[in-house]
Design a protein around this nucleic acid. Structure first.
Length: 927
RNA sequence: GGGCGUGUAGCUCAGCGGGAGAGCACUGCAUUGACAUUGCAGGGGUCACAAGUUCAAUCCUUGUCACGCCCACCA
């Protein structure tokens, strides 16, 4: 016998072990040879990660599909794995070292990387155990890590291939530089944050004129939000059509504090409406200025260190062309080595002291911040590696355009196109240690050799240099003979963006570049399930790489689910501290309840704002099913294979089998259409509102009666339906259903398979007559209950039931369901009469009037009011329909079945109105 | 500035060209046999606003208002 409530805490670990011992989720487990494959790759969580609500939703939805397809007999692979998360992981380990007073640079690169691996072995991958607690049915034996040997091999292969195809290249240009992490980052890792800043107006004296703060003709005023960059200014731009400044174009102005002569140029970039209409140009420290500088051949002077401190004193670029002066010396003394924010303050002070500060306005503007480091990024002129994303994007755009890969919901395709069609070169090099080191080696003259291994690079280099005439040939020969050949090349220090390896995930995890059986079977994978926040980071790049290297899209469908947000609609994030821990919810309500809640809330196109009260509600749903099973058990419900369910005779059995067919169809269609909320909702309604509320209640008289054949039939049908319910709910509530499946196997018997390998229901039973009869019964019982409640009839009071105007079919139904009606509606003898007895409450069900002679219990006035309300409601409906039907255009234009349905409704309402009126007048007569 | 989305019951949200729904909350009643994590009954909505299309609009179109997110940019 089951306990009264389901104990998730006890059952979940037990079932998890059952699955593990049975190796139940191994690729292809439970499937027949030659079964159709179905594959999903997990969005690899960060190795530093722990389960958050986004993961919980994401993996619940994947698990629903995976369990569903496994039960449908497919050869299923759910490929798990983790991402090495370059920056995030390096930060974690560095922080840990700092606690021991060790700085990363105190260690060698190799030592540091060893530390990271140590950290991973100890603390990494926590999230897998958490995913198991959620019930995720991944093939855990196939776990992959983006830094493991196989995947690293794929990364190298891809890099070398793309380089040789000219799709990866090295370039010197402005990048978004994170001064805290001291690495370049790609443009999508930059987020714009609103900041309250200032707009400083600076006067730049015009060459050849004596600067006079009182005389605007002697200077030009520029406005800036970043005074500290002025030392790198190499021009001032004005709009070509701006009459105010036209006379200055081509002239020089003198950069204060420094004395550099810089040119005034005419460029349409300058907006006369903004600031003063004249803008200072700092090509090395601003993306727009960089372009302007290029157009006008202005120098780009980098005045900062990698930590974003001013670098002036020994900076040849900066000092070039400057005359030494006391002013310059003062500037160097004051500003050299200053952090950019301290420098800002001092520059402003110095400008003010010199009379060059015209005014300061407060100014709200967006400042780009690194999404990991959290500090403003610095546009920085460096050598970096790039992927020609625009080229790789072309086939990726075409795939979606031509429907080979589809987004669900479809509107995300626009976001995808917008980004892909304006895609920028992808900065892939990172100045970190943790990651895939770029397979590029530099020769003595700086020449680049990109090869899979150092040996190959070396032989390529030797071949190259020995074929060369000139000094390097001799140098290389010398190295080869007398020194260390290994010294000929030095390897690029940089590692690759984490997303570079994630982009290969759908094929690298299957063994590529080797031609493995897994790759052949499971690529192309089926569905990618993800939140929209990583469409750019991940989905787009998988499309590019998958198409380029596999010639086939990595997946045919991208299901983009909602983001789980906090109650203010903000994205949950650690830094905001608004994270709800799904493990807490699992502890409190059980994994099944959390999963069911997430799936029933996962409607397409809307974010999920989680209300814990709902989880409690769906936990109760589990309890309901649990107790239904308990009830069944107490009444001898067990499978009876000798009984052919198609032969079931009892209407209620034929009805519930019909409803089961419908529910199965709804659930199946819901899952296949990614409408998980519809599927979960259909299951919920079937189990609770039909199976428990009506079917089991209607069975009680059968179980308590003495018709053994009816009992046996009902026991068999109930057992069958329960089994189907367990299966239908399994993708949503795997733990409880697996437990119930085992528990209800039958006396001493065992189930032939775990429920996770049981065949998905495919019922076809249908009996519309039975459905109509039970609907009538439900109407009858509900009607009686309703009137009793409104009349305040005590539950204990049993009134006789008198039917007026019942036809033959109804009379038969009343006989068939007599005991159920008596029990559920709490009525006594059922009789027929020509008219309503005095003091009756009356309700209309189909053609008959149902009378409850309540005698002294009835409040005639209240009953009259109740009936009048009913009449009013029906009259209103009739008026509405009549208006419609008397409209010629409606009859002429509306579809035939719509018109027919309205006519049918009209007839029914009119009949009901007649009967209600009759009941009302009888009541008045009696009064 | 561009894009996407959302305004439906007190709350959280489904739905959708043809009789306004769910869960929770609320009100009344019910507790000796599946379940109080329950049952039965009930109250509660100008479906943001306006115009249009249509025989018919909560649903389609346009506009307005409010809110959210993404992208770009602001010297």
């Amino acid at each position: 016998m089951l306990e009264k409530t389901y104990d998730a805490k006890a059952v979940e670990p037990k079932i998890a072990k059952l699955w593990e011992d049975a190796d139940a989720f191994r690729a292809g487990a439970g499937a027949a040879d030659g079964a159709e494959p179905f594959a999903i790759v997990i969005p690899p969580p960060n190795v530093t990660g722990s389960l958050h609500m986004g993961h919980a939703l994401n993996n619940t939805l994947q698990d629903i599909m995976v369990r569903f397809e496994r039960m449908r007999g497919k050869n299923v692979l759910w490929q798990p794995g983790m991402d090495h998360a370059g920056i995030a992981t390096q930060m974690v380990v560095e922080r840990q070292l700092m606690e021991k007073q060790i700085h990363r640079r105190d260690l060698s690169r190799e030592e540091f990387i060893d530390k990271v691996w140590e950290w991973k072995a100890e603390s990494g991958g926590m999230i897998f155990n958490q995913l198991k607690r959620l019930g995720a049915s991944c093939d855990w034996s196939r776990e992959r890590f983006t830094m493991d040997e196989g995947l690293s091999k794929a990364v190298i292969e891809v890099f070398v291939t793309l380089y040789k195809q000219g799709l990866i290249y090295k370039d010197k240009r402005l990048v978004s530089w994170d001064p805290k992490l001291q690495t370049a980052i790609s443009d999508i890792e930059v987020e714009q944050l609103e900041v309250n800043g200032n707009l400083w107006h600076f006067r730049y004296p015009i060459e050849g004129q004596k600067f006079d703060p009182e005389n605007p003709k002697t200077f030009i005023t520029v406005a800036t939000t970043r005074p500290e960059t002025m030392l790198g200014d190499t021009g001032v731009a004005v709009h070509p059509d701006d009459a105010r400044y036209r006379h200055l174009v081509g002239k020089n102005v003198i950069l204060p504090l420094v004395g550099r002569k810089i040119r005034v140029v005419a460029d349409a970039y300058s907006d006369p409406e903004k600031g003063t209409g004249a803008v200072k140009i700092t090509p090395a420290h601003d993306f727009n200025d960089f372009d302007v500088g290029k157009r006008h051949k202005l120098h780009a002077i980098n005045i900062m260190t990698t930590e974003a401190a001013l670098n002036l004193r020994d900076n040849e670029d900066f000092l070039e062309g400057l005359d030494s002066s006391s002013e310059l010396e003062n500037t160097l003394d004051t500003l050299h080595g200053q952090d950019r924010f301290a420098a800002r303050k001092r520059v402003v002070e110095m400008m003010e002291a010199g009379g060059f500060l015209e005014k300061v306005e407060s100014h709200k503007h967006a400042v780009p911040h690194g999404d990991r480091g959290g500090v403003p990024i610095e546009p920085f002129l460096t050598d970096q590696w790039y992927v020609n994303a625009a080229e790789l994007a072309k086939p990726a755009i075409a795939s979606v355009r031509e429907g080979r890969t589809n987004f669900v919901p479809k509107n995300w395709e626009k976001t995808y196109f917008d980004w892909m069609e304006n895609i920028q070169p992808w900065t892939i090099s990172r100045q970190l240690w943790w990651g895939h080191q770029i397979p590029a080696w530099y020769g003595p003259d700086g020449r680049i050799f990109v090869e899979k291994t150092e040996e190959e690079a070396l032989s390529a280099a030797v071949e190259y240099y020995l074929a060369l005439e000139g000094p390097w040939k001799a140098w290389v020969e010398d190295q080869l003979e007398n020194y260390e050949p290994g010294k000929i090349l030095t390897r690029d220090e940089d590692v690759l963006d984490t997303w570079f390896s994630s982009a290969l995930w759908p094929f690298s995890t299957l063994g590529w570049p080797d031609h493995t059986p897994e790759l052949k079977t499971y690529y192309q994978t089926d569905v990618l399930v993800t939140g929209f926040d990583i469409i750019f980071f991940w989905v787009a790049r998988m499309m590019m790489m998958g198409l380029h290297f596999m010639d086939e899209e990595p997946f045919h469908t991208v299901y983009v689910h909602a983001l789980v947000r906090d109650k203010n609609g903000a994205k949950m994030s650690k830094s905001k501290g608004n994270v709800i821990d799904p493990l807490d919810l699992i502890d409190e309500y059980g994994a099944d309840a959390l999963r069911f809640t997430l799936s029933i809330m996962a409607a397409q196109g809307r974010d999920v704002k989680l209300d814990p009260a709902r989880i409690a509600g769906y936990r109760n749903f589990g309890t309901k099913l649990w107790n239904a099973t308990r009830f069944a058990e107490m009444n001898g419900v067990a499978r009876n294979d000798d009984l052919w369910l198609g032969d079931a005779k009892l209407t209620i059995n034929r009805w519930i089998l019909t409803e089961l067919t419908r529910a199965t169809r709804e659930i199946t269609e819901g899952i296949t259409a990614f409408r998980f909320n519809d599927a979960a909702g259909a299951a919920y309604r079937f189990v609770w509102n039909l199976f428990c509320d009506w079917y089991l209640e209607l069975l009680k008289p059968v179980f308590m009666g003495d018709d053994e054949a009816a009992k046996a039939e009902s026991q068999a049908v109930a057992a069958f339906v329960l089994d189907e319910i367990y299966k239908l709910l399994h993708p949503f509530m795997p733990f409880m259903t697996e437990e119930l499946w085992a528990h209800t196997a039958g006396n001493g018997r065992e189930r032939p398979t775990l429920i996770c390998h049981a065949a998905w229901p495919q019922p076809s039973f249908q009996d519309v007559e039975a459905a109509a009869e039970i609907n009538w019964l439900v109407d009858l019982v509900s009607g009686i209950r309703s009137v009793r409640a409104e009349m305040n009839v005590p539950p204990a009071a049993i009134a006789p039931l008198v039917m007026v105007g019942a036809n033959a079919a109804t009379r038969e139904r009343l006989v068939r369901h007599e005991s159920a009606i008596k029990r559920l509606a709490r009525v006594g003898d059922i009789t027929h009469a020509a008219g309503a007895p005095k003091g009756s409450a009356q309700i209309v069900v189909n053609e008959a009037t149902v009378c409850l002679p309540l005698g002294s219990l009835i409040d005639l006035k209240a009953e009259a009011q109740r009936l009048q309300k009913e009449v009013a409601k029906v009259t209103e409906e009739i008026a509405r329909i009549l208006k419609k039907l008397s409209n010629e255009k409606f009859v002429a234009n509306a579809k035939e079945d719509v018109v027919a349905a309205e006519r049918q409704k009209l007839t029914e309402f009119q009949e009901a109105q007649d009967k209600l009126q009759a009941a009302l007048s009888r009541l008045r007569d009696a009064d």
